[in-house]
């Protein structure tokens, strides 16, 4: 997923922005080699005006709060001083964090869930894409695609509600078991089954949508490769192993890197919604820990410290994963220059 769109040619030739195809595009103004800032401003002011609202939003709601993370180093109190007046306490918040057993529990839960989902969620979209790609009828393909994309557009509240109606204590499963004289089970409140439950919810909601990228990658594999190898006697499994999977490898590696970089986030709303019913022991992850420490205990500085730790580790993880990918000869998220 390259986010950087292709840059048009013509670097530096400032005066020729619109004139790549037609030299007279700038009208009467002859475009010299160097164009002064004032001329460029006069030419591009409209573009800058257009960008202004968006940049203002990023400045206020992304960069400003990012700077606001300095409260991690303060004994922050909104009532006595705020950003500027609260006393600086150095690394005390971080020291507190590393000695708090609840923090380690939350970190442990987060990493366990990430690991579990890497094994039981990550391959599902790939398998789905392979199965669907082998379906020949275009009508069945688009029907299945249409159905499995849908849950991606539901909110977590809705997904949890639906799971509750089917698997919960008053849900369809318990109801059916009860009618057949069996012990009803309530999967929604069991701390032991929680990791399986959240993974199942993630698969239900996003596996179909996750398939899109793999379907796109599959469509870029040259069909002649299959034809040639089939003529040479390769069976369907050999073709899968030697053509399809290598064709998917860059996408798989890219998504793995992104997932590893995000190893400390595991779906915040999903956990906030179910923390109450299964208890903090199983459902406390780093994000919910930040929320409870920050908002319910009202220790903003400490919550920000944990959030900052999480962001910092995430950044290190993504850079490390990318480096490993480069070592294995993959492209990764950015190219090695």
């Amino acid at each position: 997923m390259s986010t950087e769109a292709p840059e048009a040619p013509g670097p530096g030739a400032a005066g020729t922005r619109a004139a790549s195809t037609s030299p007279q595009a700038l009208g009467s103004k002859p475009s010299g080699r160097r164009v002064s800032l004032r001329q460029r401003l006069r030419r591009d002011w409209a573009l800058l005006v257009m960008v202004l609202p968006g940049m203002a939003l990023f400045a206020v709601f992304h960069y400003l709060p990012s700077l606001g993370n300095i409260i991690a180093f303060q004994d922050y109190s909104p009532y006595s001083g705020g950003f500027t007046g609260s006393p600086w306490i150095g690394l005390a918040n971080f020291r507190l964090m590393f000695t708090d057993a609840a923090f380690w529990d939350a970190l442990g839960n987060t990493l366990t869930i990430t690991g579990f989902q890497l094994i039981f969620y990550f391959p599902v979209p790939i398998a789905l894409a392979l199965a669907l790609n082998s379906v020949i009828s275009p009508r069945i393909r688009s029907l299945v695609q249409g159905v499995v994309y849908l849950p991606h557009f539901f909110s977590w509240v809705l997904v949890v509600s639906l799971f509750q109606q089917i698997l919960g204590g008053a849900g369809l499963l318990a109801q059916t078991l009860r009618q057949h004289g069996m012990q009803p089970l309530d999967i929604m409140t069991s701390p032991d089954a929680f990791i399986v439950l959240v993974t199942a919810q993630t698969v239900w909601k996003d596996a179909g949508w996750g398939m899109i990228v793999f379907l796109a990658a599959l469509s870029t594999i040259d069909p002649n490769l299959y034809e040639v190898s089939a003529t040479d006697g390769a069976g369907r499994w050999r073709r899968l192993w030697h053509i399809t999977l290598p064709g998917l490898r860059p996408v798989i590696v890219l998504l793995l890197i992104l997932r590893l970089g995000d190893a400390l986030s595991v779906g915040f709303e999903q956990f906030i919604l179910q923390r109450q019913s299964v208890g903090a022991g199983a459902a406390e992850v780093l994000d919910t820990y930040v929320y409870y420490k920050g908002f319910l205990v009202q220790d903003f500085g400490y919550g920000a410290a944990v959030g900052l730790f999480k962001g910092f580790v995430g950044l290190l993880l993504i850079l490390a994963a990318n480096r490993v990918a480069h070592r294995f000869g993959e492209q990764g998220i950015y190219q090695k220059s």
């Binding site: 709060p65 990012s66 606001g68 994000d287 959030g307």
Partner: peptide
């Protein structure tokens, strides 16, 4: 902005 999120607490304070 893709590389790091601002975190919920500073966002709330803003």
């Amino acid at each position: 902005t893709f590389l790091f999120g601002p975190g919920i607490i500073p966002s709330y304070l803003v």
